[in-house]
Each structure stands twice: as structure tokens, then as C-alpha cells.
Simulated assay, not measured.
Amino acid sequence: MYYPMFYIDPLYIILVGPALIFTGWAQWKVTSTYKKWRQYGNSQGMTGAQVARYMMEQNDIY
């Protein structure tokens, strides 16, 4: 039987490894920031859609 040998180029690991580490770190930062600020409400008690509608109306955008 013939078993093909899989070869991973070390240059591939050098180039892709740091990119994967960086994207994982960035995703972790975004997720932790959303978790942190999700528990705080705004002072007006408005949803994001209500704030967007209010801002559009104040600037005559319909």
C-alpha cells in the first residue's frame, strides 16, 4: 500500500501562524468588549433603532 506523505511548508506556518494568532486575539478583544458593555443601558432607555430614528429625524433624513 502507498501512503502519501503530507508536507507542510515551514514558510506557510511562518506566514499563516501569526495571522491566525492575530485574528484570534482580535476576535477575543471584540467579544470581551461586547460582553463588558452589554450589561449597561443608556440613560434615555432607548434601543439602538430608536436612537438611529431620532438622529435621522433631527437631521431631516427620512
Rank of each mutant, 00 (worst) to 15 (best):
Arg38Ala: 15
Met56Phe: 01
Tyr2Lys: 05
Ile21Leu: 14
Gln39Gly: 05
Lys35Arg: 10
Asn59Arg: 05
Ala49Arg: 01
Arg53Tyr: 03
Met5Ala: 07
Tyr34Val: 15
Thr23Gln: 10
Tyr3Lys: 11
Thr23Ile: 12
Thr31Asn: 11
Gly17Trp: 03
Gly48Lys: 13
Thr31Ile: 09
Phe22Arg: 10
Val16Asn: 08
Met1Ala: 11
Phe22Tyr: 14
Tyr3His: 08
Gly24Gln: 05
Thr47Val: 00
Tyr2Gly: 01
Asp9Cys: 05
Ala52Trp: 10
Tyr7Asp: 03
Gln58Leu: 10
Pro4Phe: 08
Ile21Asn: 04
Ala26Gln: 09
Met55Trp: 08
Asn42Pro: 13
Leu11Cys: 14
Val30Trp: 05
Tyr3Trp: 02
Ile8Asn: 04
Phe6Thr: 14
Ile21Asp: 04
Met46Glu: 15
Ala49Gln: 01
Ala26Leu: 12
Trp37Cys: 05
Leu15Gln: 06
Leu20Ile: 11
Gly41Lys: 15
Leu11Gly: 13
Tyr2Met: 03
Tyr62Ile: 06
Thr33Ile: 06
Ala26Trp: 09
Asn59His: 05
Thr31Glu: 10
Trp37Ala: 08
Leu20His: 07
Ile13Gly: 03
Asp60Thr: 06
Gly24Arg: 05
Thr47Asp: 03
Ile8Met: 04
Trp37Val: 11
Tyr2Ser: 08
Val51Glu: 14
Gln50Pro: 01
Tyr3Leu: 13
Pro10Leu: 07
Tyr40Pro: 02
Lys35Cys: 00
Gln27Asp: 01
Trp28His: 00
Pro10Lys: 02
Gln50Glu: 09
Phe6Glu: 15
Trp37Leu: 11
Ser32Trp: 08
Gln27Arg: 00
Pro10Met: 02
Ile13Thr: 09
Pro18Ser: 02
Ile8Ser: 02
Val30Leu: 08
Val16Cys: 10
Val16Glu: 11
Met56Cys: 03
Met5Leu: 06
